[in-house]
Design a protein around this nucleic acid. Structure first.
Lengths: 246, 246
DNA sequence: TTGTGGCATTGAGCCATGTCAAGTTTGAGT
DNA sequence: ACTCAAACTTGACATGGCTCAATGCCACAA
């Protein structure tokens, strides 16, 4: 099932910050950054490193919400299903993303690894205690939740009111800015997700996604050397389309 | 880094809880409930009762986010606009709703009173201080944000994947459960919002909303004595349609 | 080299929803 | 009671995106 990382040692406390949190390269961009070095050992006790194979569902909607997750490597799709199989992807999550906020006792969405994924798992009850003891952590989580909420509202605008072309442009622009400084957007994308994922994220069908990519290509806004590679030839124009300007 | 818990007061606590928060009928269902009676005076100092006329926009997207709001009376629409006027309503907010969570320094949505509205306004910087001093308040806010997030994800599923009929059914079922104990859903609705609001909330046009209402009426799932009055004749069937069962 | 299976692309036709255009109902004001 | 404007409903038609189906493009295994 899961593969625990090295567990805190039994003898002398380590000189530096304890494993695994102390050396976690993702700490600087994750919620864990809210915790001081001196208290990091408490976090490390809670943290449970897990590897998830590509294609594995590790959060299932309606299941008891037992854990929080923090992604350290790979990409994940978050989604909801209708009984007949229609799927809405509510977001993609990469390194640094925090998952598992839920009001009720059960998860309200599913999560599936797109690539092989490494993540940190925290038991919810123990995490709650941490939140209680470290208001700064709670504050960070509130920021994360607020941020997710803003993204969700933006996505509602996209799903409710934008055309297929505008949706694709919005998607590409968002990917260009994802995880890089905002003044240095990417111009070459390696999409981890398939056309079907994109379709289910944008409320379209595979065919419409494919056709719309072809149109953007014909309009010289993008180039597709070979999927999943996409080059943004004119980011400004794409941004204009995404924002529905003109 | 981390914050001491609430500081004891300097003088004798007042006999009763101070105005206006002490007598606020909405306190029991709002975030303010996270604050003890004895500290409520600090909240009252921050709170600023405001009346907003129907039709008034009191939060404008992109404006500097100076305040938080807590609605005590009336109904509000929250929305985002595209440059050409296309509108997506991201939610309706009634008594007890908390508004203004934002990541950036600016609001990411607009808010407009549908009916005459009474609300409590809190300055953001001073509210931040309160959050710092009262972790319980921060916790409550995190719950609010998580809850909003769950709703937003549900709405993405609706906007991305549901048919017009399923959207309307979902909307009606949600209104039936809004603000009442979950085992006692309403069966008679007084909708505060117009067909246009409903359309902009569900990602449809007025005409489709109207036609779909008519079909639901023909199918004996609802009755419309006269808008904005709607009677839910068969809530179970509506729920089945909303969930896309069968 | 030749399958084989998973994606992705493209075409043809259709349909749910949008658009445009009348009408109808409602309610507030006089 | 009448008027007017705003909200709602309904019909006829248009269309963007969906469905169904064929084809193309790899990577990989035998």
């Amino acid at each position: 099932m899961n593969t625990p990382r090295p567990v805190p040692i039994l003898v002398q406390p380590p000189i530096a910050v304890p494993e695994p949190c102390g050396t976690c390269g993702m700490r600087s961009i994750s919620v864990c950054n809210a915790i001081d070095d001196i208290h990091l050992i408490r976090l490390a006790e809670l943290a449970n490193g897990v590897d998830v194979q590509a294609g594995r569902v590790f959060i299932t909607e309606q299941d008891k919400a037992t854990d929080f997750f923090n992604i350290t490597e790979g990409t994940v799709r978050l989604f909801k299903l209708l009984p007949d199989g229609r799927r809405q992807i509510t977001g993609f999550a990469g390194p640094g993303h925090f998952l598992g906020l839920a009001v009720s006792a059960n998860y309200s969405f599913s999560a599936e690894a797109i690539t092989d994924v490494k993540l940190c798992r925290f038991s919810r009850p123990r995490m709650r205690q941490m939140l209680h003891d470290f208001p700064a952590l709670e504050e960070t989580l509130l920021e994360v939740a607020s941020n997710d909420l803003v993204c969700a509202q933006e996505q509602m605008l996209l799903l409710g009111r934008k055309t297929a072309r505008e949706r694709l442009a919005s998607f590409l622009v968002a990917r260009a800015h994802d995880g890089v400084p905002s003044d240095m957007p990417r111009t070459r994308l390696h999409l981890a997700m398939t056309r079907e994922d994109i379709a289910d994220y944008l409320g379209l069908t595979i065919e419409t996604v494919s056709r719309t990519f072809s149109k953007l290509k014909a309009d010289k806004l993008i180039a597709i050397p070979s999927p999943p590679e996409i080059i943004l030839l004119n980011l400004n124009a794409l941004q204009a389309v995404a924002a529905a300007e003109k």
